[in-house]
Structure formats: structure tokens, C-alpha cells
Design a protein around this nucleic acid. Structure first.
Length: 589
DNA sequence: GTGAAGGGCCAC
DNA sequence: AAACGTGGCCCTTCAC
């Protein structure tokens, strides 16, 4: 593929080129950088393409700090503008570099990577690299061999420039194919929702979250000491079952080995179930102190291995903060995933959460949706009683218990509330009587009775869940409120697979609508707080954490709440949206 | 040494 | 007859 390109080296040709480009409705957009981390590398090239012609800007020729060079004003305006639309593949990457090195936002995003994920609708075997997506939608081969070439060389080779030009150019035919496909699959609305969330996420990754090293290390030291004591005691207890085989005193077993622990427990006469997971062992803990000790060890060991030194390695040498990778379509439901490190699985205990805190003179604003998935379920089902429980005061689970067990609100027993709560959460996932019995200690018959009673109280909820599951099985499709699509694949001869597919198909619209709402909130917040001291630092499915100047905290928290409620109302009409907001120096409530 | 699978457990 | 959804990441085990 021959691509004509112009290499921009000076201010006047840049101004002329930007003027021309700004008249286009759509541009391919790409960057070349000397590293993957915007804090550690140079933004070397910025490329635009109309498809026929590409423009390559060599930023090395515009000074050491492009963000303060007035010659780049036309470039920044073009990049930040909502039109032309900028088609980019994984635009979060380019947005971070542009934000950090040019000091402007990337406006008018059409992201071919996110679009590809939406169209794939959960088909996990599909790949989404630019080359894969171009192959799939345009039908041409794309050579990516220059992607890892040396973009820090003083003189870029003709081959490199042609690669840069072509990568931007291919995005135009890709755009026209993908927009058609998005329309055909009724995915335009959710695509727009995703594209508007890119910039907030890019900014969040750049900002990072401050992790207090000293506090974190105190945790490690304390946990290590506790773990060592427990490990010794556990070895001692387990040795009773295996000591005969060793001539050299006590034989150590590997406490982290499933198989060895299982054998040792069996030798001690413990009736170990097939699995030694905590939920299986818990009933044995009372009768067998060694089992209790093992569970104690596991908790401490988990804390040390998953939430220990490893997190400290992620503190950035330049910023002193943790910059995780957030994938905005991390799950086929549309939920985010987070890694390196995962900030969505920090233990709830204060000892851990308080390590994530605001910088000096700053404070955190922590907001989360109250029972958002249950509200979505209430709205979707239209069940009058279920909706009513949200309107009957603050304690939803108690209100539900009163309805299910037909008692006055003030007469709800702790057990009744607990049953109702477990059912409320469980029904979203397709909880069955056996599991409910196992988790509550009820007999199978009692569990079945309680489930029946629950669904008798909420007949339209029952009806909705049945209809939703049946439809998922029949059509093999599910959608969220924004139109996000899931294709469900299963072998219909495999009953377990069909059951699993049915539960997934039922759950996806609920979980996915929650993700829709969060993403909508992100873009509203981004707009609303653009000129303020507030920065997004973390998101956890139904929770948003901002950091701002202490003086602004009240105002920011108001705006955050308003944006989150407004986002919820766009999708949920029949049930009030409730957001809890806290202002705190630490990420602990 | 490396990588995949399986078990386990943290979050929502 | 079925067995509660989504992720990331740790460790062990086993194959290459």
C-alpha cells in the first residue's frame, strides 16, 4: 500500500497542515513513542491521515518541552477538538502521551480497539491488535514490524516514516467498515459511551494513586511476624501425622502445597473434603484445631504474597505513585479490569485501605453507588414490592426481610435480615437452593421453602429472571441498558454448560448496566471537574475515588454525587439512585 | 528456565 | 439434574 505523506519540520508548515486537516470530518490518528511509559519516554511522532494523505509531525524539532511551545498551538487545538473525529487504535495510549507531553486532551475519539471488543461481544477467541482488526474488517495485511523500531534515532528512516504514515492511513477504511458494523449491531450508543470514558481513564492512569510506603511496610512486618508464629505452630501440629518418616527430627511440609497439606490432614484423621478451600474447611475448624490453624495461616500468607512487597515494586520512581493499568472493557459484561497492580482487590480492612491516601494538602473524595445492581434489577423487573423495598427507608435488606417473612419492619430478626440479604445478592447470580442451604446452614427443604417464599413476595422479579434467562438461552444474546451486547456460546447437549450460560445471560444485563452507569458517570465527572483541582485516582465497579485540594472537597463531593446520580438516572427510571460520598484523607470508610 | 493449568482467595 | 456472576494474581505442579 502506497501512502503519500508530508513530514512536518517547522512552525509554518505545521500551521498550514493543521488548518487543512481541521476541515476534515474524520482523521486517522497515531503516535510513535520511544517507550511505553509516558513518564519515561519521548513522544516522537504525531500522525494524522485523511486516508489518501498522511501528515507526520516530528516533535523532536519543536524543542525539549512541547507542552510549552507556542508553535504547537494549532496542533493542540486540532487534537483537542471534538471534530474532526480521531480514529485511533487503543486511544488510551495516545491520549496519555498527548496529555503528558503536549498538555492537551484527545478529543473526538473513535477507538477501533474498543469498537472491535464491542462487536466481538464476548467472543474470546477473537484478537484485537490493529493488524488483527484490519485483517478482519478491511481484509488487508498490516506489517507491524516497525512498531518496535528505534524511534529515538535522530534521522528516522524512510521505512519508519512510511510505516507511521500507513498506520494512520489504514484507520480511515477501518473506521468506515466499523461504523457500519456498529450501526448494524445496534452498538452505536454503547460505543459512544466507551469512547467518552477513554480520556478520564487515561488521565486516571497518568495521575496514579498515592501508596504510603511506610504504612504498607508496617503491615508487612506485622503480618510476617504473625505468619511465622502460625506457620511454626501449624508445622508442629501437622508433624504429628508424618514425623515417623523422618530421621532428622520434624519433617517440614510445604504449607502452600495443596497436596501435602491434604495428605498431612488425612494422616491426622481429619475427614478432609476433596477441596481444601476455606468454605469447605470452615465447618471442620471447630472440631479440629489444626484446621483452624491452617485457615489462619492461609489468610496471613495470602496477605503477604498478594498484598506485600509486590505492591511496592509498582511505585513509580518519577511520581512516587502507583499507576495501574485499567482495561475499560475488561470483562465481556463491560466491567473494568485492573492490573499491575490490581487496585480493585485491595482487602477491605482499614490496615490496607488506609495505605492508599491523598498527597499533602490534598484529600480523597470516595463515592459509591448504594446497591446499584439490585436497583437495576428492580427497575428491569418492574416488581412493585421489590421497588417498594428501596423506598421504605434506608435498610433495603431489612425492608425485604419484612416483606418476605411478613413481619413488621421493627420485628425483623437478625437471621431474617441475613437470609434476605443473601438472597438479594444471590438472585442476581442465579443462586440455587443447595448453595443457599450450604451458606446459611438451612436444610435443603428449608432453603427451598425460603426461596419459594422470596419469589412469591416478588412475582414480577421471578418472572423477569425466568424470562431473561430463557431469552438468553433461546437467542444466545443478552444486552445491557446502553445496548452493550453479549453473544452466548454453549453446547446445548451439555446441561451444566447450558445452566451456566443461562446464569451468565441473566446476570450480564445487570452487571453490565452497572458498568454502563459507571462509565457514563466518568465522562460526566470529567467534563464537570476539568478545570478544578480534582483528579480521578481509582474506580472499583460501583465506586469512584477522586483526589482534590482540601479546600475544594465539599464542592467536589457535591459535583461528584450529582454526576453519579445523573448517570444512574439516564438508565434507571423506576428506582431512586443513591450515592454515598465520604471525604477522607485515606481510602477507608 | 518457562509456561500453562489448577486450586485458592482478594475485590465488587 | 443442575450447584452463584465478573475479574487479577499468588503458589504448586507438571510438561517441555
Amino acid at each position: 500500500m502506497e501512502v503519500f505523506f508530508e513530514l512536518i519540520k517547522d512552525e509554518s508548515s505545521l500551521r498550514a497542515a493543521c488548518e487543512q486537516l481541521s476541515k476534515e470530518p474524520v482523521l486517522g490518528f497515531d503516535t510513535e513513542t520511544t517507550a511505553l511509559d509516558p513518564y519515561l519516554g519521548e513522544l516522537r511522532l504525531v500522525q494524522f491521515s485523511t486516508g489518501k494523505r498522511s501528515v507526520i509531525i516530528d516533535l523532536r524539532l519543536f524543542g525539549d518541552d512541547p507542552s510549552s511551545n507556542p508553535a504547537l498551538v494549532p496542533l493542540r487545538s486540532l487534537i483537542a477538538a471534538e471534530t474532526p473525529v480521531k480514529v485511533a487504535h487503543n486511544s488510551k495510549f495516545d491520549a496519555k502521551w498527548v496529555r503528558h507531553h503536549l498538555g492537551c486532551e484527545l478529543g473526538g475519539i473513535f477507538d477501533s480497539y474498543l469498537a472491535s471488543l464491542l462487536i466481538a461481544a464476548g467472543e474470546s477467541e477473537r484478537r484485537h491488535s490493529l493488524a488483527d482488526v484490519v485483517q478482519f474488517f478491511v481484509g488487508t495485511e498490516l506489517d507491524k514490524s516497525q512498531q518496535v523500531s528505534d524511534w529515538s534515532a535522530n534521522e528516522l528512516s524512510q521505512v519508519q516514516l512510511e510505516y507511521a504514515a500507513r498506520d494512520a492511513a489504514i484507520l480511515l477504511p477501518l473506521y468506515s467498515q466499523m461504523t457500519e458494523r456498529l450501526k448494524a449491531d445496534d452498538l452505536t450508543r454503547v460505543a459512544e459511551l466507551e469512547f467518552k470514558a477513554v480520556m478520564p481513564v487515561a488521565q486516571m492512569e497518568l495521575t496514579g494513586f498515592f501508596l504510603d510506603q511506610d504504612r504498607w511496610k508496617e503491615n508487612i512486618t506485622r503480618t510476617k511476624a504473625d505468619r511465622d508464629v502460625i506457620a511454626d505452630e501449624l508445622q508442629e501440629m501437622l508433624a504429628a501425622g508424618v514425623s515417623q518418616v523422618s530421621l532428622f527430627g520434624r519433617s517440614e511440609i510445604n504449607l502452600d502445597s495443596q497436596a501435602q497439606v491434604h495428605d498431612a490432614l488425612t494422616n491426622l484423621g481429619v475427614p478432609v473434603p476433596e477441596s481444601t478451600r476455606a468454605s469447605q474447611l470452615e465447618p471442620l475448624a471447630e472440631g479440629f484445631p489444626v484446621v483452624a490453624k491452617l485457615l489462619e495461616y492461609r489468610t496471613l500468607q495470602k496477605a503477604l504474597t498478594s498484598f506485600g512487597e509486590n505492591y511496592l515494586e509498582f511505585i513509580h520512581p518519577k511520581t512516587g505513585r502507583v499507576h495501574s493499568d485499567f482495561r475499560q472493557i475488561g470483562a465481556p459484561t463491560g466491567r473494568f479490569s485492573c492490573s499491575n497492580p490490581n487496585l480493585q482487590q485491595i482487602p477491605h480492612e482499614t490496615a490496607y485501605r488506609r495505605c492508599f491516601r491523598a498527597g499533602d494538602g490534598r484529600t480523597l473524595v470516595v463515592a459509591d453507588y448504594s446497591q446499584i445492581e439490585l436497583r437495576i434489577l428492580a427497575d428491569f423487573s418492574g416488581d412493585k414490592n421489590f421497588i417498594g423495598a428501596f423506598e421504605n427507608g434506608a435498610d433495603f435488606h431489612a425492608a425485604a426481610a419484612a416483606q418476605v417473612f411478613k413481619v413488621k419492619a421493627e420485628d425483623v430478626s437478625p437471621d431474617q435480615r441475613s437470609f434476605a440479604k443473601r438472597l438479594n445478592f444471590g438472585v442476581v447470580y442465579g443462586l440455587g437452593a443447595a448453595r443457599f442451604a450450604a451458606m446459611t446452614g438451612l436444610s435443603q427443604a428449608e432453603a427451598e421453602g425460603t426461596l419459594r417464599r422470596y419469589f412469591a413476595t416478588y412475582p414480577d422479579l421471578d418472572g423477569y429472571l425466568r424470562k431473561s434467562g430463557d431469552s438468553a438461552l433461546r437467542t444466545r444474546l443478552a444486552r445491557t441498558a446502553s445496548g452493550r451486547l453479549l453473544k452466548i456460546r454453549f453446547d446445548e447437549n451439555d446441561r451444566a454448560a447450558a445452566g451456566s450460560a443461562k446464569r451468565f445471560g441473566t446476570n450480564m444485563p445487570i452487571q453490565g448496566t452497572s458498568a454502563d452507569i459507571l462509565k457514563r458517570a466518568l465522562s460526566l465527572i470529567h467534563e464537570e471537574l476539568r478545570e478544578t483541582s480534582a483528579r480521578l485516582v481509582n474506580i472499583v465497579h460501583d465506586e469512584i475515588v477522586l483526589e482534590c485540594d482540601e479546600a475544594d472537597a465539599d464542592e467536589i463531593s457535591q459535583k461528584l454525587r450529582n454526576a453519579m446520580v445523573a448517570a444512574g438516572r439516564e438508565y434507571i427510571k423506576a428506582v431512586p439512585i443513591d450515592v454515598e460520598v465520604a471525604i477522607s484523607k485515606e481510602w477507608a470508610k
